[in-house]
């Protein structure tokens, strides 16, 4: 080990933190935290509502896992008088 390397020894905790954050983001999607769906719903709604007028009651979000495949299904009904997309703002 070089003298320089010895003196500039990097701490290992930030690496642990980073690895955990990446890993858990993946595992939570696979195994599911039940509040994940509620949280996703709120956040997706907020993003869409910035651009499109939507009825929060008409949004369905479903997660599913089969074997190694995890799916996220988002079903949003957009109602406008003329049937087309209506952008807010």
């Amino acid at each position: 080990m070089s003298v320089l390397k010895f003196f500039t020894r990097r701490s290992s905790a930030p690496a642990a933190r980073e690895r955990l954050q990446l890993l858990l983001a993946h595992e939570r999607a696979v195994f599911g935290r039940t509040d994940l769906v509620a949280q996703l719903k709120d956040e997706i709604l907020a993003v869409i509502a910035k651009h499109i007028a939507i009825d929060p009651e008409k949004v369905r979000i479903k997660t599913d896992t089969r074997d190694t495949l995890a799916t996220l299904e988002v079903d949003i009904e957009i109602r406008t008088p003329n049937g087309g997309l209506k952008l807010a703002g």
Partner: peptide
């Protein structure tokens, strides 16, 4: 305060939120 323990705790939190009577 160690990676494998934190990871397992996260799994357990998921189970507490789904497999318990309260959930």
């Amino acid at each position: 305060p160690e990676v494998s323990s934190v990871r397992d705790s996260d799994r357990i939190i998921g189970l507490l939120d789904s497999k318990t009577e309260k959930a």
